[in-house]
Nucleic acid binder design. Structure first.
Lengths: 244, 244
DNA sequence: ATCGGTAATAATTTCGAAATTATTTAACTA
DNA sequence: TAGTTAAATAATTTCGAAATTATTACCGAT
């Protein structure tokens, strides 16, 4: 067998990867997706605002291709509107879309909690307990504070962590994915249109506690009742709830 | 004010749009998305199969950018798996993911039908009636036929149209979007793993008829009972259903 | 002065090639 | 001959610029 002729591999020194991570490297598509999703939920871009690739490129220090990829994903999830040759813009909400999100939360949360209470073991109970403790911590501080504003973002994040942890034992990734979309749609509206992101003062503490206690005791009826009280369902949806 | 100097617009004749649409033009991202989604559901690509841009480019006659855009959207929806630098592949199913899809269908379909029966007017009743008629037409033919194979795709499409039409009056786009994802996940598994795409012979006709009659009469309890019978829920999920 | 049309400008989308990363193949060693 | 290493190849991702499309500003006419 004839020996093959091979030239040695040439490595361009300027392209060699640095040992120290370069902090100002352009973020990849997945990171951008997270940044944009977070920004849309937390009001960095207002509902209906145009998301111009050229401006965002400067603002986020990224390349247009990665940006476009992230925006396409967000459009698929419904957090961004896109029309052909008209670019992207943050979705605009209405009371109706908010009610849809609340309703979806109610439907999915009730079903998921039923399954979670059946499947959840000791590990789950610990996780729920921890998430509740953190949420209570924030809510107690807010109760004592004159101005709740600086706590709102922390609170909202803990609210998500608590609800998500409770449902995490339901063993349906499909359900949890839909729930996340509904929850984030809910939150997006709350951030932009409700005075305190939907924080309801003392009631919240009581409601979350009721959900927590019922969950830990695996009391299905009590847990679902507590969730029903907790969500700001319209009368319309509540009627439907009665049938459930 | 000084007159501005302007050169006449030059149009490259070769780039001028033809009056007759060119059939072999490269499909845009949205069309590709539909083609790929359809192909994934109907088994054009097998579960777990790698979706290589280079091959697909030839197969579908498209450009790589449009293809990538479509694949990104499908990945976001969960019909395609993507890992960094490892390309895309059709999702692989299991009995568990199928059961999740069935369960999601049950949860969402029951809730949507409750709302639809409240909101649906005459127009909706006509649409439901028409969709049912078409479905029955296919199912009667299948009943008479020795081999149902050639009807399966028609049947599956009409099954979707019927269920979707029934739910269409629910007035929640968020719910309908989640339902579509669940239904298509269900169908994807059925096409690849169930002998007759989930078609159950005479039972199907009876079940669809029960749903139809209950819907037209706005009989909520009967409609939900009929849906429960219709969906291939596991015992696990059925227990949960009893609590609903 | 307002309306309609046309050119200039700005923005978005598309595209092909370069750069990066993974996979396969071949050579070498034990 | 099996196991190891590195090159060659193949595939994927990135990128910047070209092409397309929308928007804005200007001129002329009614």
């Amino acid at each position: 067998m004839a020996t093959r002729l091979r030239s040695p591999r040439v490595i361009n020194p300027s392209k060699q990867q640095s040992v120290v991570p370069i902090s100002d490297a352009a973020p990849d598509a997945h990171t951008l997706y997270e940044v944009l999703r977070d920004g849309l939920i937390w009001g960095r871009w207002k509902p209906g605002e145009k998301l111009k690739p050229q401006h965002l490129k400067d603002e986020l220090g990224c390349k247009s291709a990665a940006l476009r990829e992230a925006l396409i994903r967000l459009a698929g999830e419904g957090f961004v509107d896109s029309e052909l040759n008209q670019g992207f813009r943050a979705v605009a909400h209405s009371k109706e879309t908010f009610q849809e999100a609340v309703h979806m939360r109610w439907v999915l949360e009730c079903e998921a909690v039923r399954m979670a209470l059946k499947n959840g073991g000791f590990e789950w109970e610990m996780a729920v307990s921890a998430a509740h403790k953190k949420l209570v911590f924030v809510e107690e501080r807010m109760k004592a504070a004159d101005d709740v504003t600086p706590f709102l973002k922390h609170w909202s994040r803990q609210d998500w962590e608590f609800h998500n942890t409770v449902l995490s034992a339901c063993r349906s990734t499909l359900l949890l994915r839909s729930y996340k979309t509904a929850y984030d749609t809910f939150r997006m509206y709350a951030v932009s249109s409700l005075p305190t992101y939907g924080f309801g003062g003392d009631n919240n503490i009581t409601e979350h506690n009721a959900i927590y206690e019922a969950a830990i005791q695996h009391d299905e009826a009590a847990c679902i009742e507590a969730i029903l009280c907790h969500l700001p369902l319209s009368d319309d949806a509540t009627l439907s709830a009665g049938a459930g």
